[in-house]
Design a protein around this nucleic acid. Structure first.
Lengths: 181, 181
DNA sequence: CCTACCGATCGGTAGG
DNA sequence: CCTACCGATCGGTAGG
């Protein structure tokens, strides 16, 4: 179903018909239903699959690292690795989850909120350690995640920045900003 | 057409039918065509209208302010003011421009790229002044704009943060980051 | 601003 | 995996 994700990234989920997907793999639309239950299954599997990858990533970070700055760097690294690994899937995860049916969308938002909370706890930990400024943790977390998720929009696998380098630059930017001291 | 924008934000552009829009203003779908040329006109007018507001904002900044840090603060302020002024329009501008027809979408992307360039020039200016670090200007600009545009997702007019305060916190975050010196 | 309607397309099913 | 098909819905038009 990788080619389906490619179509959905290029044309958008709603604009990609089962007939589009079928003809991209030289089938008739009706035949797709022998492989998947319906169109939404593709969206569900992709969004929740990536959610799980991200959750595992942040869990690993919280299990291992102690220092908040270290945790944040590693969380950013894992997030960027997951997003850049499959840009088609990332597009569905970042943009098209809005078109999940009501109950699935509610589940998705809940998991996204939990993931945000994990990041927020790192920000709070950094303050408690005396290493981070006394910023609004919710505001800071939303701002951080916005920059991370946007990477999927401009990252190109054949470009001149590796995911690892992107993660390092993001960490640097988020920790110490643009201005010289 | 404000109610149309509200529907499009809530349900998405493609999922909002002319019949939905019509019934929200107690009309028949056919009658809408006495007011607008077609469904896409709503999307076009909104996306390009906000683009123009943003362009005016950055132009003003570049005409008046001299110092890069000042320019950046004012550019962020103008951007957040524009986005928070009409969250429905902002949603179309940030998310739904992808559904513009090919030529309009190309125009939109071109104007967005020009706007990005204005921000990038401020980042470069800051480095030339010796005030900003030697960051990758393109990377920094994309990261900055990602955080700005995400504000439309969580800002609530009745919430506890005013647009002005959001802009200040964003500027602070972008200039000096999370970590204590 | 409405009634009536068009051709196109959709996700999905029946039955083989 | 295909042919044939379903009901629903879409953006938009004709004509008043």
């Amino acid at each position: 179903m990788g080619t389906a994700l490619g179509l959905m990234r290029k044309k958008g989920y709603l604009n990609t018909s089962m007939r589009d997907i079928a003809s991209s793999v030289n089938m008739e639309a009706a035949s797709l239903y022998n492989h998947i239950k319906g169109k939404e299954e593709i969206l569900i599997d992709t969004c929740f699959g990536l959610a799980e990858t991200l959750e595992m990533g942040i869990k690993e970070v919280n299990d291992i690292y102690f220092n908040a700055a270290e945790k944040l760097a590693m969380a950013i690294h894992n997030h960027i690795q997951a997003l850049t690994q499959d840009l088609n899937a990332s597009h569905l995860f970042v943009h098209e989850w809005r078109h999940l049916s009501d109950d699935k969308r509610a589940q998705f938002i809940q998991r996204r909120d939990l993931y945000e909370k994990e990041f927020r706890d790192i920000v709070i930990l950094g303050f408690e350690e005396g290493e981070f400024k006394n910023v609004d943790p919710k505001f800071a977390t939303l701002t951080i995640l916005a920059s991370l998720n946007w990477v999927g929009e401009w990252y190109r696998p054949q470009g001149d920045m590796e995911p690892k380098e992107i993660a390092q630059k993001l960490t640097q930017f988020i920790l110490s900003g643009l201005q010289k001291n």
